[in-house]
Simulated scan of single mutants.
Amino acid sequence: MDILSLLGVILGFAALIGGNFLEGGSIQSLLNAPAAIIVIGGTLGAAMLQTPWLQMRRAFAIFPWVFNPPRNLFQDGLDRVVRWAMAARKEGLLGLETMAETEADHFAQKGLQLLVDGSEPESIRRVLETEMIVNEQRDLDAARFYESMGGYSPTIGIIGAVMGLIHVMRNLADPNELGPGIAIAFVATIYGVAFANLFLLPVANKIKTCIQSQSQYRELIIEGIIAIAEGENPRNIEVKLNGYLP
């Protein structure tokens, strides 16, 4: 669990509600079901309209990364690469076959299998880098689903406010209804702006950070496997890959 993400969400909305109280407002003044339906439904609908099904499904699949990001243990990855290098030095590349079969990381397993098959270093690099780039782009496209929602949300909030003002105008004959009516109308604007800036855009950026970290981890694996294929000394490989450590 990423405590920082959880605290960020709580602090952001707590500051909004707390500021409302300090100004003499109440929680009831911020609650408006029609405004919430307009903002949430309109934002989601607009984002769905521009997003292919597979991309949207991937966006929902990686949403948990915000609070439970993938664990890319760079030190553990470096240690594994060094173990592979030592095994290859002692037993040859065929000695990695057992390690490849038991490797839990699919990406690393693919690289080890290419080593065992005797592929050339440049061929291994092309295969692994292609897979890394394709996966990275797929996840970035999925993150843009939340980024697009963050762009639409404030505008949908303004639309909700205008719709509320239209209803207020119908009560111009009753001045007592104007003040509360206008206040309720602008709740939609608050929902739209707050939803975008306190949740959707931070979610998109947090997912992008996770994607970047994952790609860096895979770069470590690629460079390690290429170094093994080129017959480098395990100690030299370790020194070379230390630069990837946080």
Rank of each mutant, 00 (worst) to 15 (best):
R125A: 14
P175R: 15
L112E: 07
V39L: 00
F195A: 01
N205R: 13
T209Y: 03
N72E: 09
I221Y: 01
S148Y: 08
S26W: 08
I225T: 12
N176W: 05
V82W: 05
I10M: 04
F60Y: 03
V116P: 04
A61C: 00
N135K: 13
R138N: 12
G224M: 05
D117H: 08
A59M: 01
E91H: 10
F74V: 07
M1P: 09
V9R: 06
R218K: 13
P121E: 09
A33I: 14
V239D: 06
N197V: 02
D139T: 07
D76P: 01
K208M: 03
G8H: 06
I221D: 02
T43M: 00
G157C: 03
I27A: 15
V82H: 05
V116S: 10
S5C: 08
Q28T: 11
L198N: 05
L115P: 10
P202S: 10
N197Y: 12
V127R: 14
R138F: 04
I190L: 15
G92K: 00
E223G: 07
F107N: 12
A61K: 10
R58K: 10
V82K: 14
D76A: 15
R218Y: 01
Q212G: 06
A35D: 02
I190H: 00
L172Y: 06
E122N: 15
A87I: 12
G45A: 03
D141Y: 11
A14K: 08
L78A: 04
D105L: 12
A14Q: 04
L165P: 11
H167M: 13
Y191H: 01
I225K: 07
E103M: 12
V9P: 07
G157Q: 01
I211P: 00
E219C: 07
I124C: 15
A188S: 13
N68A: 15
P154D: 06
F67D: 02
